[in-house]
Design a protein around this nucleic acid. Structure first.
Lengths: 265, 265
DNA sequence: CAGTGGTCTAGACCACTGG
DNA sequence: CAGTGGTCTAGACCACTGC
Protein backbone atom coordinates (compact mmCIF):
# COMPACT_ATOMS: atom_id res chain seq x y z
CA UNK A 1 0.00 0.00 0.00
CA UNK A 2 1.13 3.52 -0.58
CA UNK A 3 2.62 5.50 2.24
CA UNK A 4 0.40 5.31 5.25
CA UNK A 5 0.74 8.92 6.24
CA UNK A 6 -0.07 10.25 2.77
CA UNK A 7 -3.18 8.17 2.53
CA UNK A 8 -4.69 9.64 5.63
CA UNK A 9 -5.87 13.13 6.34
CA UNK A 10 -3.16 15.30 7.80
CA UNK A 11 -2.97 15.08 11.56
CA UNK A 12 -5.49 17.44 12.99
CA UNK A 13 -3.60 19.46 15.53
CA UNK A 14 -5.48 22.16 17.31
CA UNK A 15 -8.66 23.15 15.52
CA UNK A 16 -10.56 20.34 13.88
CA UNK A 17 -10.35 21.94 10.42
CA UNK A 18 -14.07 22.18 9.94
CA UNK A 19 -15.35 25.44 8.57
CA UNK A 20 -18.99 26.11 9.22
CA UNK A 21 -20.87 26.24 5.94
CA UNK A 22 -17.94 24.91 3.95
CA UNK A 23 -18.40 21.46 2.40
CA UNK A 24 -17.32 18.80 4.84
CA UNK A 25 -13.72 17.71 4.71
CA UNK A 26 -13.37 14.18 3.34
CA UNK A 27 -14.22 11.82 6.15
CA UNK A 28 -11.51 9.71 7.68
CA UNK A 29 -10.85 6.77 5.44
CA UNK A 30 -9.38 3.71 7.11
CA UNK A 31 -6.71 1.69 5.41
CA UNK A 32 -8.96 -1.24 4.61
CA UNK A 33 -11.30 1.02 2.70
CA UNK A 34 -8.49 2.24 0.54
CA UNK A 35 -7.60 -1.36 -0.19
CA UNK A 36 -11.22 -2.04 -0.94
CA UNK A 37 -11.27 0.86 -3.38
CA UNK A 38 -8.10 -0.42 -5.00
CA UNK A 39 -9.53 -3.90 -5.47
CA UNK A 40 -12.75 -2.41 -6.79
CA UNK A 41 -10.86 -0.41 -9.39
CA UNK A 42 -8.99 -3.52 -10.44
CA UNK A 43 -12.27 -5.37 -10.80
CA UNK A 44 -13.72 -2.52 -12.79
CA UNK A 45 -10.65 -2.50 -15.04
CA UNK A 46 -11.35 -6.15 -15.80
CA UNK A 47 -8.09 -7.36 -14.31
CA UNK A 48 -9.88 -10.55 -13.33
CA UNK A 49 -12.77 -12.00 -15.28
CA UNK A 50 -16.01 -13.08 -13.63
CA UNK A 51 -15.58 -16.46 -11.99
CA UNK A 52 -11.81 -16.16 -11.75
CA UNK A 53 -9.90 -16.28 -8.49
CA UNK A 54 -8.16 -13.17 -7.24
CA UNK A 55 -4.90 -13.24 -5.33
CA UNK A 56 -4.90 -14.90 -1.95
CA UNK A 57 -5.22 -12.84 1.19
CA UNK A 58 -1.66 -13.45 2.29
CA UNK A 59 -0.32 -12.58 -1.13
CA UNK A 60 -2.28 -9.35 -1.23
CA UNK A 61 -1.19 -8.52 2.30
CA UNK A 62 2.47 -9.05 1.42
CA UNK A 63 2.18 -7.12 -1.82
CA UNK A 64 0.44 -4.17 -0.18
CA UNK A 65 2.61 -4.24 2.92
CA UNK A 66 -0.36 -4.65 5.17
CA UNK A 67 -1.53 -7.31 7.60
CA UNK A 68 -3.80 -10.11 6.51
CA UNK A 69 -6.57 -8.85 8.76
CA UNK A 70 -6.72 -5.57 6.92
CA UNK A 71 -6.94 -7.21 3.52
CA UNK A 72 -9.55 -9.49 4.99
CA UNK A 73 -11.74 -6.67 6.10
CA UNK A 74 -11.59 -5.10 2.63
CA UNK A 75 -12.55 -8.38 1.02
CA UNK A 76 -15.28 -8.89 3.61
CA UNK A 77 -17.05 -5.77 2.45
CA UNK A 78 -16.60 -6.61 -1.20
CA UNK A 79 -18.02 -10.06 -0.59
CA UNK A 80 -20.95 -8.57 1.23
CA UNK A 81 -21.66 -6.27 -1.68
CA UNK A 82 -21.69 -9.23 -4.04
CA UNK A 83 -18.53 -8.29 -5.86
CA UNK A 84 -16.56 -11.26 -4.62
CA UNK A 85 -17.37 -14.72 -3.37
CA UNK A 86 -15.26 -16.46 -0.78
CA UNK A 87 -14.83 -20.21 -0.79
CA UNK A 88 -12.97 -21.65 2.14
CA UNK A 89 -10.01 -23.76 1.14
CA UNK A 90 -10.21 -22.64 -2.48
CA UNK A 91 -9.89 -18.91 -2.77
CA UNK A 92 -11.79 -15.70 -3.41
CA UNK A 93 -13.57 -15.39 -6.73
CA UNK A 94 -15.09 -12.65 -8.80
CA UNK A 95 -18.86 -12.87 -8.55
CA UNK A 96 -20.75 -13.83 -11.67
CA UNK A 97 -24.31 -14.17 -12.85
CA UNK A 98 -23.31 -17.01 -15.16
CA UNK A 99 -23.10 -19.81 -12.64
CA UNK A 100 -25.88 -18.95 -10.27
CA UNK A 101 -27.71 -22.01 -9.16
CA UNK A 102 -30.83 -19.92 -8.91
CA UNK A 103 -30.31 -18.94 -12.54
CA UNK A 104 -32.01 -15.61 -11.91
CA UNK A 105 -30.24 -13.72 -9.20
CA UNK A 106 -32.37 -10.62 -9.49
CA UNK A 107 -35.74 -12.24 -10.20
CA UNK A 108 -37.81 -12.25 -7.04
CA UNK A 109 -40.85 -13.96 -8.50
CA UNK A 110 -41.56 -17.27 -6.81
CA UNK A 111 -44.25 -19.92 -7.16
CA UNK A 112 -46.73 -19.79 -4.29
CA UNK A 113 -45.96 -23.39 -3.40
CA UNK A 114 -42.35 -22.55 -2.76
CA UNK A 115 -40.91 -24.78 -5.45
CA UNK A 116 -38.12 -23.35 -7.55
CA UNK A 117 -39.82 -23.89 -10.88
CA UNK A 118 -37.67 -23.49 -13.95
CA UNK A 119 -38.88 -20.94 -16.43
CA UNK A 120 -38.48 -21.08 -20.18
CA UNK A 121 -37.79 -18.02 -22.28
CA UNK A 122 -39.34 -16.84 -25.49
CA UNK A 123 -37.67 -13.98 -27.31
CA UNK A 124 -40.18 -11.64 -28.89
CA UNK A 125 -38.05 -8.87 -30.25
CA UNK A 126 -34.53 -7.47 -30.26
CA UNK A 127 -33.84 -4.31 -32.19
CA UNK A 128 -31.78 -1.16 -32.14
CA UNK A 129 -33.62 2.11 -31.78
CA UNK A 130 -33.21 5.66 -30.56
CA UNK A 131 -33.78 6.33 -26.89
CA UNK A 132 -36.89 8.23 -25.92
CA UNK A 133 -36.65 10.89 -23.26
CA UNK A 134 -37.56 8.63 -20.38
CA UNK A 135 -35.25 5.75 -21.30
CA UNK A 136 -32.41 8.17 -22.02
CA UNK A 137 -32.78 9.85 -18.67
CA UNK A 138 -32.80 6.59 -16.77
CA UNK A 139 -29.70 5.27 -18.56
CA UNK A 140 -27.87 8.56 -18.45
CA UNK A 141 -27.87 8.98 -22.23
CA UNK A 142 -28.79 11.80 -24.56
CA UNK A 143 -32.27 11.63 -25.97
CA UNK A 144 -31.99 9.97 -29.38
CA UNK A 145 -28.86 7.95 -28.64
CA UNK A 146 -28.84 4.35 -29.77
CA UNK A 147 -30.28 1.72 -27.46
CA UNK A 148 -31.05 -1.96 -27.82
CA UNK A 149 -34.59 -2.93 -27.01
CA UNK A 150 -35.44 -6.49 -26.08
CA UNK A 151 -38.85 -7.92 -25.41
CA UNK A 152 -39.32 -11.42 -24.13
CA UNK A 153 -41.61 -13.74 -22.24
CA UNK A 154 -40.89 -16.06 -19.36
CA UNK A 155 -43.20 -19.06 -19.14
CA UNK A 156 -43.74 -21.85 -16.66
CA UNK A 157 -41.78 -24.96 -17.49
CA UNK A 158 -44.57 -27.49 -17.26
CA UNK A 159 -47.02 -28.08 -20.14
CA UNK A 160 -49.04 -26.25 -21.10
CA UNK A 161 -46.55 -23.42 -20.65
CA UNK A 162 -48.23 -20.42 -19.05
CA UNK A 163 -46.79 -16.95 -19.61
CA UNK A 164 -45.72 -15.34 -16.35
CA UNK A 165 -43.44 -12.42 -17.12
CA UNK A 166 -43.33 -9.98 -20.00
CA UNK A 167 -40.04 -8.10 -19.98
CA UNK A 168 -39.14 -5.03 -21.95
CA UNK A 169 -35.44 -4.22 -21.69
CA UNK A 170 -33.35 -1.26 -22.82
CA UNK A 171 -29.56 -1.31 -23.02
CA UNK A 172 -27.13 1.42 -24.05
CA UNK A 173 -26.28 0.74 -27.70
CA UNK A 174 -22.69 1.81 -27.24
CA UNK A 175 -22.02 -0.95 -24.74
CA UNK A 176 -23.77 -3.75 -26.61
CA UNK A 177 -22.51 -3.36 -30.12
CA UNK A 178 -22.95 -6.82 -31.61
CA UNK A 179 -26.10 -7.76 -29.74
CA UNK A 180 -28.72 -9.23 -32.08
CA UNK A 181 -31.73 -11.44 -31.78
CA UNK A 182 -29.69 -14.37 -33.06
CA UNK A 183 -26.96 -13.95 -30.48
CA UNK A 184 -29.56 -13.65 -27.79
CA UNK A 185 -31.53 -16.66 -28.94
CA UNK A 186 -28.44 -18.82 -29.22
CA UNK A 187 -27.29 -18.08 -25.68
CA UNK A 188 -27.84 -20.75 -23.05
CA UNK A 189 -28.01 -19.56 -19.49
CA UNK A 190 -28.92 -16.29 -17.80
CA UNK A 191 -29.01 -13.13 -19.90
CA UNK A 192 -26.72 -11.38 -17.45
CA UNK A 193 -24.22 -14.16 -18.08
CA UNK A 194 -24.21 -13.21 -21.75
CA UNK A 195 -23.72 -9.56 -20.86
CA UNK A 196 -20.70 -10.47 -18.74
CA UNK A 197 -19.09 -12.88 -21.13
CA UNK A 198 -19.64 -11.09 -24.42
CA UNK A 199 -19.86 -7.43 -23.51
CA UNK A 200 -17.94 -7.12 -20.28
CA UNK A 201 -20.93 -5.55 -18.55
CA UNK A 202 -21.42 -6.71 -15.00
CA UNK A 203 -24.56 -5.96 -13.04
CA UNK A 204 -23.66 -5.21 -9.48
CA UNK A 205 -26.88 -3.98 -7.96
CA UNK A 206 -30.33 -2.84 -8.98
CA UNK A 207 -33.24 -0.76 -7.79
CA UNK A 208 -36.81 -1.77 -8.38
CA UNK A 209 -40.03 0.20 -8.27
CA UNK A 210 -43.15 -1.86 -8.03
CA UNK A 211 -46.69 -0.88 -8.83
CA UNK A 212 -50.01 -2.53 -9.58
CA UNK A 213 -51.48 -1.67 -12.96
CA UNK A 214 -54.26 -2.84 -15.24
CA UNK A 215 -53.16 -4.90 -18.24
CA UNK A 216 -53.18 -3.02 -21.54
CA UNK A 217 -54.85 -4.80 -24.43
CA UNK A 218 -51.68 -5.97 -26.23
CA UNK A 219 -49.87 -6.98 -23.05
CA UNK A 220 -52.96 -8.90 -21.96
CA UNK A 221 -52.82 -11.00 -25.11
CA UNK A 222 -49.16 -11.89 -24.59
CA UNK A 223 -49.70 -12.80 -20.96
CA UNK A 224 -52.94 -14.63 -21.65
CA UNK A 225 -54.98 -12.58 -19.20
CA UNK A 226 -58.09 -10.50 -19.60
CA UNK A 227 -57.59 -6.87 -20.60
CA UNK A 228 -57.57 -4.75 -17.48
CA UNK A 229 -56.46 -7.63 -15.29
CA UNK A 230 -54.20 -6.50 -12.42
CA UNK A 231 -50.50 -7.02 -13.04
CA UNK A 232 -47.37 -6.23 -11.15
CA UNK A 233 -45.29 -3.60 -12.90
CA UNK A 234 -41.65 -3.96 -11.89
CA UNK A 235 -39.32 -1.25 -13.14
CA UNK A 236 -35.72 -2.19 -12.60
CA UNK A 237 -32.67 -0.03 -13.08
CA UNK A 238 -29.46 -2.07 -12.92
CA UNK A 239 -26.09 -0.58 -12.16
CA UNK A 240 -22.58 -1.60 -13.00
CA UNK A 241 -19.47 -0.33 -11.26
CA UNK A 242 -19.39 3.25 -10.14
CA UNK A 243 -23.18 3.51 -9.91
CA UNK A 244 -23.34 3.51 -13.68
CA UNK A 245 -26.83 2.59 -14.95
CA UNK A 246 -26.58 -0.01 -17.72
CA UNK A 247 -30.00 -1.56 -17.99
CA UNK A 248 -33.57 -0.43 -17.71
CA UNK A 249 -36.18 -3.13 -17.47
CA UNK A 250 -39.92 -2.93 -17.36
CA UNK A 251 -41.43 -6.24 -16.30
CA UNK A 252 -45.08 -7.18 -16.14
CA UNK A 253 -45.64 -10.06 -13.75
CA UNK A 254 -48.74 -12.19 -13.63
CA UNK A 255 -49.18 -12.92 -9.93
CA UNK A 256 -51.64 -15.75 -9.90
CA UNK A 257 -49.82 -18.75 -8.57
CA UNK A 258 -46.71 -16.59 -8.21
CA UNK A 259 -45.66 -13.77 -5.93
CA UNK A 260 -42.83 -11.31 -5.53
CA UNK A 261 -41.01 -12.22 -2.36
CA UNK A 262 -39.06 -9.82 -0.26
CA UNK A 263 -37.16 -9.95 2.98
CA UNK A 264 -37.13 -7.04 5.41
CA UNK A 265 -34.27 -6.70 7.88
CA UNK B 1 -16.87 -17.93 28.08
CA UNK B 2 -17.35 -21.52 29.07
CA UNK B 3 -14.56 -23.97 28.57
CA UNK B 4 -13.23 -23.73 25.10
CA UNK B 5 -12.79 -27.44 24.59
CA UNK B 6 -16.28 -28.32 25.71
CA UNK B 7 -17.85 -25.83 23.37
CA UNK B 8 -16.24 -27.30 20.31
CA UNK B 9 -16.78 -30.64 18.66
CA UNK B 10 -14.44 -33.28 19.95
CA UNK B 11 -11.19 -33.50 18.04
CA UNK B 12 -11.73 -35.59 15.01
CA UNK B 13 -8.96 -38.12 15.06
CA UNK B 14 -8.92 -40.69 12.34
CA UNK B 15 -12.24 -41.06 10.60
CA UNK B 16 -14.22 -37.86 10.10
CA UNK B 17 -17.22 -39.11 12.07
CA UNK B 18 -19.63 -38.69 9.19
CA UNK B 19 -21.94 -41.59 8.56
CA UNK B 20 -23.43 -41.74 5.14
CA UNK B 21 -27.18 -41.28 5.38
CA UNK B 22 -27.04 -40.23 9.00
CA UNK B 23 -28.02 -36.65 9.79
CA UNK B 24 -25.02 -34.36 9.56
CA UNK B 25 -23.02 -33.78 12.72
CA UNK B 26 -23.43 -30.26 14.07
CA UNK B 27 -21.21 -27.98 12.01
CA UNK B 28 -18.19 -26.40 13.60
CA UNK B 29 -19.25 -23.39 15.61
CA UNK B 30 -16.62 -20.72 16.15
CA UNK B 31 -16.30 -18.99 19.47
CA UNK B 32 -17.72 -15.70 18.30
CA UNK B 33 -20.91 -17.43 17.22
CA UNK B 34 -21.37 -18.87 20.66
CA UNK B 35 -20.96 -15.40 22.08
CA UNK B 36 -23.44 -14.12 19.54
CA UNK B 37 -25.91 -16.79 20.62
CA UNK B 38 -25.36 -15.85 24.24
CA UNK B 39 -25.99 -12.17 23.59
CA UNK B 40 -29.03 -13.06 21.54
CA UNK B 41 -30.47 -15.11 24.37
CA UNK B 42 -29.88 -12.22 26.75
CA UNK B 43 -31.66 -9.89 24.38
CA UNK B 44 -34.51 -12.32 24.06
CA UNK B 45 -34.74 -12.62 27.83
CA UNK B 46 -35.20 -8.86 27.97
CA UNK B 47 -32.03 -8.27 29.97
CA UNK B 48 -31.70 -4.93 28.18
CA UNK B 49 -34.67 -2.90 26.99
CA UNK B 50 -34.90 -1.50 23.46
CA UNK B 51 -32.80 1.63 23.17
CA UNK B 52 -30.61 0.76 26.15
CA UNK B 53 -26.86 0.34 25.95
CA UNK B 54 -25.35 -3.09 26.46
CA UNK B 55 -22.01 -3.69 28.12
CA UNK B 56 -18.95 -2.32 26.39
CA UNK B 57 -16.81 -4.56 24.23
CA UNK B 58 -13.89 -4.58 26.63
CA UNK B 59 -16.15 -5.35 29.55
CA UNK B 60 -17.77 -8.25 27.72
CA UNK B 61 -14.38 -9.50 26.61
CA UNK B 62 -13.07 -9.47 30.15
CA UNK B 63 -16.21 -11.06 31.56
CA UNK B 64 -16.22 -13.83 28.97
CA UNK B 65 -12.47 -14.36 29.06
CA UNK B 66 -12.14 -13.69 25.39
CA UNK B 67 -10.34 -11.09 23.30
CA UNK B 68 -12.06 -7.90 22.23
CA UNK B 69 -11.85 -8.90 18.58
CA UNK B 70 -13.95 -11.97 19.22
CA UNK B 71 -16.66 -10.05 21.05
CA UNK B 72 -16.50 -7.52 18.26
CA UNK B 73 -17.17 -10.06 15.60
CA UNK B 74 -20.20 -11.34 17.51
CA UNK B 75 -21.57 -7.83 17.87
CA UNK B 76 -20.81 -7.13 14.21
CA UNK B 77 -23.18 -9.84 13.14
CA UNK B 78 -25.86 -8.80 15.58
CA UNK B 79 -25.61 -5.23 14.34
CA UNK B 80 -25.88 -6.40 10.79
CA UNK B 81 -29.01 -8.33 11.63
CA UNK B 82 -30.56 -5.21 13.16
CA UNK B 83 -30.52 -6.48 16.70
CA UNK B 84 -27.98 -3.94 17.88
CA UNK B 85 -26.87 -0.50 16.80
CA UNK B 86 -23.32 0.68 17.27
CA UNK B 87 -22.53 4.31 17.95
CA UNK B 88 -18.89 5.19 18.02
CA UNK B 89 -17.80 6.92 21.16
CA UNK B 90 -21.08 6.15 22.90
CA UNK B 91 -21.72 2.46 23.03
CA UNK B 92 -23.74 -0.37 21.55
CA UNK B 93 -27.51 -0.13 21.88
CA UNK B 94 -30.44 -2.45 21.53
CA UNK B 95 -32.24 -1.70 18.27
CA UNK B 96 -35.70 -0.24 18.49
CA UNK B 97 -38.55 0.72 16.20
CA UNK B 98 -39.51 3.56 18.51
CA UNK B 99 -36.91 6.09 17.52
CA UNK B 100 -36.60 5.43 13.85
CA UNK B 101 -36.22 8.63 11.92
CA UNK B 102 -38.02 6.97 9.04
CA UNK B 103 -40.90 6.22 11.41
CA UNK B 104 -41.77 3.15 9.36
CA UNK B 105 -38.81 0.84 9.19
CA UNK B 106 -40.62 -1.89 7.32
CA UNK B 107 -42.80 0.23 5.05
CA UNK B 108 -41.31 0.30 1.58
CA UNK B 109 -43.91 2.53 0.00
CA UNK B 110 -42.43 5.78 -1.29
CA UNK B 111 -43.80 8.80 -3.14
CA UNK B 112 -42.75 8.79 -6.78
CA UNK B 113 -41.09 12.17 -6.37
CA UNK B 114 -38.71 10.79 -3.77
CA UNK B 115 -39.90 12.97 -0.93
CA UNK B 116 -40.33 11.32 2.44
CA UNK B 117 -43.92 12.33 2.91
CA UNK B 118 -45.38 11.90 6.37
CA UNK B 119 -48.46 9.73 6.55
CA UNK B 120 -51.33 10.10 8.94
CA UNK B 121 -53.11 7.16 10.47
CA UNK B 122 -56.78 6.46 10.87
CA UNK B 123 -57.79 3.53 13.02
CA UNK B 124 -60.80 1.69 11.65
CA UNK B 125 -61.16 -1.23 13.95
CA UNK B 126 -59.48 -3.11 16.76
CA UNK B 127 -61.13 -6.18 18.16
CA UNK B 128 -60.45 -9.57 19.59
CA UNK B 129 -61.62 -12.56 17.62
CA UNK B 130 -60.88 -16.22 16.98
CA UNK B 131 -58.23 -17.09 14.44
CA UNK B 132 -59.36 -18.61 11.19
CA UNK B 133 -57.41 -21.46 9.70
CA UNK B 134 -55.19 -19.30 7.54
CA UNK B 135 -54.31 -16.74 10.20
CA UNK B 136 -53.71 -19.48 12.76
CA UNK B 137 -51.36 -21.33 10.48
CA UNK B 138 -49.32 -18.24 9.66
CA UNK B 139 -48.96 -17.25 13.32
CA UNK B 140 -48.35 -20.78 14.53
CA UNK B 141 -51.55 -20.92 16.58
CA UNK B 142 -54.36 -23.38 16.89
CA UNK B 143 -57.40 -22.62 14.80
CA UNK B 144 -59.84 -20.75 17.04
CA UNK B 145 -57.26 -19.26 19.39
CA UNK B 146 -57.66 -15.61 20.29
CA UNK B 147 -56.16 -13.00 18.03
CA UNK B 148 -56.36 -9.24 17.87
CA UNK B 149 -57.46 -7.84 14.58
CA UNK B 150 -56.65 -4.26 13.63
CA UNK B 151 -57.72 -2.41 10.54
CA UNK B 152 -56.41 0.99 9.71
CA UNK B 153 -55.75 3.46 6.94
CA UNK B 154 -52.64 5.43 6.11
CA UNK B 155 -53.29 8.70 4.29
CA UNK B 156 -51.13 11.34 2.70
CA UNK B 157 -50.33 14.20 5.01
CA UNK B 158 -51.27 17.06 2.75
CA UNK B 159 -54.88 18.19 2.35
CA UNK B 160 -57.02 16.76 1.06
CA UNK B 161 -55.73 13.60 2.68
CA UNK B 162 -55.73 10.75 0.18
CA UNK B 163 -55.92 7.15 1.42
CA UNK B 164 -52.86 5.18 0.38
CA UNK B 165 -52.68 2.04 2.47
CA UNK B 166 -55.35 -0.16 3.98
CA UNK B 167 -53.83 -2.48 6.56
CA UNK B 168 -55.41 -5.49 8.16
CA UNK B 169 -53.33 -6.84 11.02
CA UNK B 170 -53.55 -9.97 13.15
CA UNK B 171 -51.67 -10.45 16.40
CA UNK B 172 -51.59 -13.41 18.80
CA UNK B 173 -54.04 -12.57 21.56
CA UNK B 174 -51.91 -14.19 24.21
CA UNK B 175 -49.07 -11.74 23.59
CA UNK B 176 -51.18 -8.59 23.39
CA UNK B 177 -53.46 -8.89 26.36
CA UNK B 178 -54.43 -5.29 27.06
CA UNK B 179 -54.46 -4.05 23.49
CA UNK B 180 -57.60 -2.07 22.74
CA UNK B 181 -58.67 0.54 20.23
CA UNK B 182 -58.20 3.23 22.86
CA UNK B 183 -54.65 2.22 23.68
CA UNK B 184 -53.87 2.10 20.01
CA UNK B 185 -55.44 5.44 19.21
CA UNK B 186 -53.70 7.14 22.13
CA UNK B 187 -50.25 6.00 21.07
CA UNK B 188 -48.00 8.50 19.34
CA UNK B 189 -45.29 7.06 17.16
CA UNK B 190 -44.86 3.84 15.23
CA UNK B 191 -47.08 0.92 16.06
CA UNK B 192 -44.06 -1.34 16.47
CA UNK B 193 -42.84 1.09 19.11
CA UNK B 194 -46.02 0.44 21.07
CA UNK B 195 -45.55 -3.30 20.71
CA UNK B 196 -42.02 -2.99 22.12
CA UNK B 197 -42.80 -0.66 24.96
CA UNK B 198 -46.09 -2.11 26.17
CA UNK B 199 -45.99 -5.76 25.23
CA UNK B 200 -42.30 -6.57 24.98
CA UNK B 201 -42.70 -7.84 21.45
CA UNK B 202 -39.85 -6.89 19.16
CA UNK B 203 -40.03 -7.33 15.43
CA UNK B 204 -36.72 -8.48 14.14
CA UNK B 205 -37.34 -9.34 10.53
CA UNK B 206 -40.21 -9.91 8.14
CA UNK B 207 -41.08 -11.62 4.92
CA UNK B 208 -43.36 -10.08 2.35
CA UNK B 209 -45.27 -11.57 -0.53
CA UNK B 210 -46.46 -9.11 -3.11
CA UNK B 211 -49.19 -9.52 -5.67
CA UNK B 212 -51.35 -7.37 -7.89
CA UNK B 213 -55.08 -7.75 -7.32
CA UNK B 214 -58.31 -6.03 -8.26
CA UNK B 215 -59.91 -3.93 -5.56
CA UNK B 216 -62.91 -5.53 -3.87
CA UNK B 217 -65.97 -3.33 -3.52
CA UNK B 218 -65.59 -2.47 0.17
CA UNK B 219 -61.83 -1.96 0.01
CA UNK B 220 -62.30 0.28 -3.01
CA UNK B 221 -64.55 2.55 -1.00
CA UNK B 222 -62.03 2.89 1.81
CA UNK B 223 -59.17 3.59 -0.57
CA UNK B 224 -61.24 5.91 -2.75
CA UNK B 225 -60.59 3.98 -5.94
CA UNK B 226 -62.93 2.40 -8.46
CA UNK B 227 -63.99 -1.18 -7.76
CA UNK B 228 -61.70 -3.52 -9.64
CA UNK B 229 -58.86 -0.99 -9.70
CA UNK B 230 -55.43 -2.63 -9.51
CA UNK B 231 -53.87 -2.61 -6.04
CA UNK B 232 -50.70 -3.96 -4.55
CA UNK B 233 -51.41 -6.73 -2.06
CA UNK B 234 -48.57 -6.97 0.44
CA UNK B 235 -48.73 -9.87 2.86
CA UNK B 236 -46.23 -9.49 5.61
CA UNK B 237 -45.28 -12.01 8.25
CA UNK B 238 -43.12 -10.47 10.96
CA UNK B 239 -40.88 -12.48 13.25
CA UNK B 240 -39.55 -11.92 16.71
CA UNK B 241 -36.61 -13.75 18.24
CA UNK B 242 -36.15 -17.36 17.39
CA UNK B 243 -38.04 -17.12 14.12
CA UNK B 244 -41.25 -16.81 16.06
CA UNK B 245 -44.04 -15.30 13.94
CA UNK B 246 -45.85 -12.56 15.86
CA UNK B 247 -47.70 -10.51 13.29
CA UNK B 248 -49.55 -11.14 10.08
CA UNK B 249 -50.38 -8.13 8.00
CA UNK B 250 -52.33 -7.80 4.81
CA UNK B 251 -51.78 -4.41 3.22
CA UNK B 252 -53.50 -2.97 0.18
CA UNK B 253 -51.41 -0.23 -1.40
CA UNK B 254 -52.67 2.30 -3.87
CA UNK B 255 -49.72 2.79 -6.23
CA UNK B 256 -50.63 5.93 -8.08
CA UNK B 257 -48.12 8.54 -7.06
CA UNK B 258 -46.46 5.94 -4.85
CA UNK B 259 -44.40 2.83 -5.45
CA UNK B 260 -42.90 -0.02 -3.50
CA UNK B 261 -39.16 0.38 -3.67
CA UNK B 262 -36.70 -2.44 -3.41
CA UNK B 263 -32.97 -2.81 -3.61
CA UNK B 264 -31.35 -5.90 -5.13
CA UNK B 265 -27.81 -6.83 -4.14
C1' DC C 1 -10.19 13.91 30.18
C1' DA C 2 -11.88 9.00 30.45
C1' DG C 3 -14.63 5.77 28.03
C1' DT C 4 -16.55 4.04 23.90
C1' DG C 5 -16.31 1.87 19.36
C1' DG C 6 -12.94 1.39 15.23
C1' DT C 7 -8.48 0.18 13.07
C1' DC C 8 -4.24 -2.29 12.55
C1' DT C 9 -0.59 -5.52 13.52
C1' DA C 10 2.01 -10.02 13.94
C1' DG C 11 1.59 -14.32 14.72
C1' DA C 12 -0.53 -18.78 15.89
C1' DC C 13 -3.57 -22.17 14.84
C1' DC C 14 -7.93 -24.36 12.73
C1' DA C 15 -11.10 -26.02 8.89
C1' DC C 16 -11.51 -27.03 4.31
C1' DT C 17 -10.06 -28.14 -0.58
C1' DG C 18 -7.57 -30.45 -3.94
C1' DG C 19 -3.71 -32.89 -5.85
C1' DC D 1 0.47 -32.62 1.76
C1' DA D 2 0.53 -27.46 0.71
C1' DG D 3 -2.45 -23.66 0.04
C1' DT D 4 -6.64 -21.35 0.89
C1' DG D 5 -9.96 -18.84 3.79
C1' DG D 6 -11.49 -18.56 8.90
C1' DT D 7 -10.68 -17.87 13.88
C1' DC D 8 -8.44 -16.02 17.88
C1' DT D 9 -5.22 -13.44 20.65
C1' DA D 10 -2.78 -9.47 22.95
C1' DG D 11 -1.71 -5.24 22.50
C1' DA D 12 -1.21 -0.59 20.46
C1' DC D 13 -3.21 3.29 18.79
C1' DC D 14 -6.99 6.28 16.52
C1' DA D 15 -11.62 8.72 16.16
C1' DC D 16 -15.52 10.12 18.45
C1' DT D 17 -18.61 11.42 22.45
C1' DG D 18 -19.65 13.65 26.56
C1' DC D 19 -18.49 15.48 30.96
Amino acid sequence: MSTRAASRPAARVGTPARHAGAPEAPAFSPLYRQIKALLLSRLQAGEWKPGEAIQSEVELAARLKVSQGTVRKAIDELAQENHLVRRQGKGTFVATHAEERTQYRFLRLTPDDGGGARLQRRLLECRRMRAGAEVARALGLQSGEAVVQIRRLLLTGSEPAQPVVLDEIWLPGALFKGLTADRLAAWRGPMYGLFEAEYGVRMVRAEERIRAIAAAADDAVLLAVAPGAPLLLVERLSFSYGQRPVELRRGLYRTTGFHYRNELG
